[in-house]
Amino acid sequence: NITNLCPFDEVFNATRFASVYAWNRKRISNCVADYSVLYNLAPFFTFKCYGVSPTKLNDLCFTNVYADSFVIRGDEVRQIAPGQTGNIADYNYKLPDDFTGCVIAWNSNKLDSKVSGNYNYLYRLFRKSNLKPFERDISTEIYQAGNKPCNGVAGFNCYFPLRSYSFRPTYGVGHQPYRVVVLSFELLHAPATVCGPKKST
């Protein structure tokens, strides 16, 4: 009989979030998941669920729940959905087409922007091929755009693959930082360890 609440607040209220290319994953298990708490945590810009209804979450049980978190800019949030393409979905964080879970995003301009520009958040701009779903690539190998090998040196047709967002508070919403948490629900042929409040007794 599990009584402890799932530590969603640790994920959502973390002081620092990860850069999207090096997104963070927390496995959540053996706890009571009260998803209604999430609705009250922040004024969400996005709370979209796929393959599951957000209002039914509190009635369900899962084997595992994974919470992935990272920062992107406002106009990239739409890429965090099944079947999307674009720089983020292709080279940084890719959801599977049959994704079961929820994408939660909110504006973090007050936390993640600086007047002089916050350069701490990076994204991958160049990659030889698209990522597979939930693949994480943290390599910093020089990207070869031409025929000549780069031998690890940046220059003509040889690019450092990561680029930094420079978040400034005066930017338009599309270029402001957004914190994203992706909850993916895993149903294996194994005992369910993460249940809503109704199912945990």
Rank of each mutant, 00 (worst) to 15 (best):
A14M: 06
D90P: 02
P177V: 03
A145C: 08
T63W: 06
K128M: 08
G83H: 11
R127N: 05
S29A: 10
N92A: 03
I142R: 05
A18D: 07
Q144S: 10
N40C: 06
N92Q: 03
A22T: 06
D90I: 00
G117C: 06
N109P: 03
H175D: 14
G101Q: 00
I104M: 11
S129Q: 14
L41R: 12
N130S: 12
I104D: 00
L95M: 07
T46G: 06
Y21Q: 05
R78I: 09
G83R: 12
Y39T: 14
D59Y: 10
L187M: 14
P54W: 15
F99N: 00
L162R: 02
R78V: 11
V181F: 03
P197E: 12
D112T: 02
R25N: 03
F47R: 07
N58R: 11
C195Q: 08
Y165S: 05
L183P: 00
S113G: 12
V11G: 02
N87V: 15
C49F: 00
V181N: 01
P54F: 15
S69D: 02
V32W: 09
L60Q: 11
V103S: 00
P82I: 00
D68L: 01
I88D: 02
D97T: 10
R179Y: 05
R163A: 12
T15P: 14
N64K: 10
T193H: 10
L60K: 08
N109F: 07
R27P: 06
S69Q: 04
F45G: 15
R163N: 09
N4P: 06
N87S: 11
Q84D: 02
Y165H: 06
A33C: 09
G83L: 08
P96A: 05
S108L: 04
G146Q: 06
K26M: 09
L122G: 15
T201M: 14
V52H: 04
Y123R: 12
Y66F: 11
V71I: 07
G174V: 08
K114Q: 15
S69I: 02
K114L: 10
A18T: 04
N151K: 14
N92R: 02
F70M: 03
G152Y: 05
F12P: 01
F62W: 15
K198A: 14
R78F: 08
N157I: 05
Y35T: 08
A105C: 06
Q79V: 01
S36F: 04
Q79A: 04
K48F: 02
W106C: 02
S69P: 00
C150W: 02
K114M: 11
N24W: 00
A18N: 13
R73N: 07
N4K: 14
P197D: 12
L122H: 15
S200R: 11
C158H: 04
K48C: 06
T100L: 13
R16H: 14
V182K: 00
I72T: 01
V115E: 15
Y143E: 08
T85R: 14
R73E: 07
S19R: 01
V182L: 01
R124L: 04
C31H: 04
L162I: 10
F99V: 00
V194N: 11
V181R: 00
Q176D: 07
G146T: 09
Y66E: 05
V173I: 13
